[in-house]
């Protein structure tokens, strides 16, 4: 601030008083929300890191174990199995959700009859909760009474175990996630498509490009940053899969759908290993950041300019 020696003392005081008044006014606006948000995030995050260095069940005295929880996590076969299931889900879900969103955005971005109806049908599942989606999945995919097996039987095909089959359960969960979230990727691709100036495509068509070539060489490059963004976003979501597992299989059958967050929840809130649960959470956070930074660096190098 202005502390030049030529400023008389009473003016300096006046300036300081105005600074205080401004700060009071400013914090009156931002204070309540800022305190709530920071108090419920920065402070617990720091605490969580401290917890990850302890063994603690929430009741007895915590025992400092240094990096012991992290060391145990690295050698924990059940955790690695959960990592594998999460990876499988991510591979099933992320590419298909990005591609489906892209396809539906291109399809819905035209003036044909019923397009409003199609859009509504595809977008409504976005508001369905994980609890409702989970219960609905157990109904639709019920081996005895479900619609899917009824259709298979009508077609003369063998009914499947779906959520009760360790090989199929994760596929069913990915399908239902896709049902609920297709709207999201579709909407962001629709917004991106509509940001592309129409003249670009017209120019390509006038220059003799076919529609397909114009799409491939004009539209797709414009969409690449959004594709990179959607991939990161959906990957982060996929790595945190919990709700749909809880509401369909509860990690089963034979632990085939036990994801990292499900494992974490179980360790922390069923086994009350708060320290170990915190270590797993920080590990997940670190991996998420690594993947995000990796995609950003890759797209920078590939000159995609998403970020």
């Amino acid at each position: 601030m202005t502390t030049a020696p030529t400023v008389p003392a009473d003016r300096r005081r006046a300036i300081r008083r105005r600074g205080v008044a401004r700060a009071l006014e400013g914090w009156a606006f931002v204070g309540p929300a800022t305190v709530l948000v920071l108090g419920l995030s920065i402070f617990p995050a720091a605490w969580s890191f401290l917890l990850s260095l302890q063994r603690w069940d929430g009741f007895s005295d915590p025992v400092a174990v240094g990096l012991g929880n992290y060391a145990y996590a690295v050698s924990d076969a059940d955790l690695w199995a959960a990592v594998g299931h999460t990876g499988l889900y991510t591979l099933l879900f992320v590419p298909s959700s990005v591609l489906l969103g892209l396809l539906l955005a291109v399809a819905l971005n035209r003036r044909i009859r019923f397009v409003g109806l199609y859009r509504t049908a595809i977008f409504v599942p976005f508001v369905a909760s994980a609890a409702a989606t989970g219960i609905l999945s157990t109904y639709l995919f019920s081996p005895q009474f479900g619609l899917l097996n009824t259709i298979l039987r009508d077609l003369g095909l063998p009914p499947q175990g779906w959520l009760e089959d360790p090989k199929q359960a994760m596929v069913v969960i990915a399908l239902m996630s896709l049902w609920g979230s297709a709207a999201f990727t579709t909407v962001i691709f629709l917004a991106a498509l509509q940001d592309i100036p129409a003249e670009l495509v017209e120019a390509a068509l006038i220059d003799g490009a076919t529609k397909r070539q114009a799409f491939r060489h004009v539209v797709v490059p414009q969409l690449t940053p959004v594709i990179a963004f959607a991939t990161i976003w959906q990957t982060v979501e996929a790595l945190q899969l919990f709700d749909l597992v809880y509401t369909t299989t509860r990690g089963g059958p034979l632990n085939a759908t036990q994801t990292v967050v499900y494992y974490l929840w179980n360790a922390a809130f069923k086994q009350t290993e708060f320290g170990y649960g915190s270590a797993v959470a920080w590990g997940l956070f670190a991996i998420t950041m690594l993947i995000t930074v990796g995609v950003i660096l890759y797209s920078r190098r590939a000159r995609i300019e998403a970020f």
Binding site: S41, S48, Q240, F274
Partner: peptide
């Protein structure tokens, strides 16, 4: 900065709090 912190990191200390 807090936008990036995932809920999994927060749920245990928030529960204790």
């Amino acid at each position: 900065a807090t936008i990036m912190i995932p809920t999994q990191v927060l749920m245990i200390p928030t529960y204790v709090l």
